[in-house]
Design a protein around this nucleic acid. Structure first.
Length: 466
DNA sequence: CCACGTACACCC
DNA sequence: AAACGGGTGTACGTGG
């Protein structure tokens, strides 16, 4: 049995064993800040988001007329109602148009069916490779991407604000089985960031007059927890030396020198590399670091060779199933042998007991892991493999929230959002730097682990700038 | 008209 | 109860 651990507030407990008292204390400790987040709400710049909405509508008009200009008098053949007008928003219509009428897939190509097998899949991911096969494909993809941003964000959020233009999301504390918070009405944990246009939506979330937004987020927190729980020597060394874990993985796998790679990366990003060095860097980044990063990201989710192949394909790297299989089992886990042992231990614990436990003692039931049907069993072990890291990471942030709330009250800081590894607050301008430093310090020191946990902070007037 | 299942897309 | 863990919300299509 492992030794006892003392937490920030003087609480002592034994890690990794079921401990409902500890979980209750953790969950309840975060409630005052959650309540404050609900009360304050985040301010929305209404004219800004309305202008963005108009821009998106205009873009969509362009995409739709462009698409239709290539489709002649095409109409959808409905099983009951005969020919009806083509609806660019209907997946059924798109499937019939592209794969039955235009046959953009060519001959002898196996198309992927939806899970229920009703029709062919027409997601952006599926359609993407067919951009060159018909001029309507591109505009349709773009139209749908705009449709998502408009329907979910730019046209909806302005209608949900209070008299002071503030949005009060609801943080649900009993929904996620890992103990994470979830956010609804509206969900402010899924505001776009990945695409250029999507990220502009974050520009609509602003500080209050005379104040600024302060954000702090944990670096690679689930990997840090994996390092702590597994005691894998390479992982420990990565975080103790403040290295980038994906770059380190790459160096271990391909036999490169870490400092040279880190230096090359720094100089490339500062535009200080010559042509030859730039080419070397881009090769390193695309063909060596990217696969390592993808595996590193997927491994805690129980990613299979098929999953890796699909992820890499979306990045333009086409590997065979055998290559993916070998990369995970031999290359990656040759570096992180201790991580493999930890995951296998978690799997066998789940198979034996039908449950899994995080660092703080939060239990998740995974009865599927006791099944004799292989694919059901795999479902269970995947959940079991991910739970300790996700749940422990979440628990650590809840401790930070408990510690920070009294500080926020003393400094007149308004907590606004929690996004799993990140806290955003609204802070008086004069206190911003001091508060940002305190916030970061608390997040880094809430839980004593074998490796330092790193948090970084940002100060800005708009969420987009954080 | 409404409730629901489905497919899809956004986040960490 | 598929193939990558955890979430929320939307439009479409169908059936009561």
């Amino acid at each position: 049995m492992s030794a006892q651990v003392q937490l920030f507030g003087g609480v002592v407990f034994s890690p990794n064993v079921p401990n409902p008292e500890n979980v209750r204390r953790l969950d309840h400790g975060a409630l005052p800040m959650i309540a404050a987040m609900h009360r304050h709400g985040i301010r929305l710049d209404i004219p800004y988001i309305q202008a963005l909405n108009v821009r998106i509508v205009d873009l969509q008009r362009g995409y739709e007329s462009e698409a239709r200009s290539w489709l002649g008098r095409y109409q959808y053949r409905h099983a009951k109602h005969g020919y009806i007008p083509f609806n660019i928003g209907s997946r059924d219509h798109l499937a019939q148009l592209f794969f039955e009428e235009l046959r953009i897939q060519g001959d002898g190509v196996e198309l992927k069916r939806t899970p229920t097998g009703k029709r062919e899949e027409v997601s952006a991911e599926i359609l993407e490779p067919y951009r060159d096969r018909h001029p309507a494909v591109g505009p349709v993809i773009e139209w749908h991407s705009c449709e998502k941003l408009r329907n979910t964000y730019t046209s909806v959020l302005p209608g949900l604000v209070d008299s002071e233009s503030r949005l009060h999301t609801k943080f649900n504390v009993t929904v996620a089985s890992t103990g994470r918070l979830s956010s609804s009405n509206p969900n402010l944990q899924n505001i776009p960031i990945r695409t250029k246009l999507g990220k502009e939506i974050r520009g609509a979330f602003v500080c209050s007059p005379g104040r600024v937004l302060v954000s702090a987020d944990m670096a690679q927190i689930e990997m840090v927890w994996a390092a702590h729980r597994s005691q894998d020597p390479v992982m420990l060394s990565v975080f103790r030396n403040r290295q980038d874990i994906h770059t380190r993985t790459t160096c271990e796998v391909f036999g490169l020198d870490y400092e040279k790679c880190a230096d090359l990366t720094r100089r490339y990003e500062a535009k200080q590399t010559n042509e030859e060095e730039s080419a070397a860097y881009l090769y390193f980044k695309q063909f060596q670091r990217l696969p390592c990063k993808t595996v590193g990201f997927g491994v805690l989710y129980g990613q299979t060779a098929e999953g890796l192949q699909k992820s890499l394909a979306s990045e333009g790297i086409h590997w065979t199933l055998e290559q993916c299989e070998k990369f995970i089992t031999q290359d990656f886990f040759a570096v992180y042998g201790g991580l493999r042992v930890m995951l296998e231990d978690d799997y066998s614990f789940a198979r034996r007991y039908g449950m899994v436990v995080d660092y703080f003692g939060r239990v998740r039931l995974v009865p599927e892991a006791k099944s004799n049907l292989k694919w059901i069993n795999n479902e269970g072990t995947r959940k079991a493999g991910n739970h300790p890291e996700q749940s422990s990471a979440q628990g650590g942030l809840k401790l930070s929230m408990a510690e920070l709330q009294p500080i926020c009250e003393r400094m007149d800081v308004w907590p606004l959002l929690q996004i799993h590894d990140q806290l955003i607050s609204d802070c008086p301008v004069g206190l911003a730097q001091e508060f940002a430093d305190v916030k970061t310090w608390v997040m880094e020191h809430s839980v004593p682990l074998s490796v330092p946990t790193r948090a970084s902070n940002d100060i800005g007037e708009r969420w987009m700038d954080l």
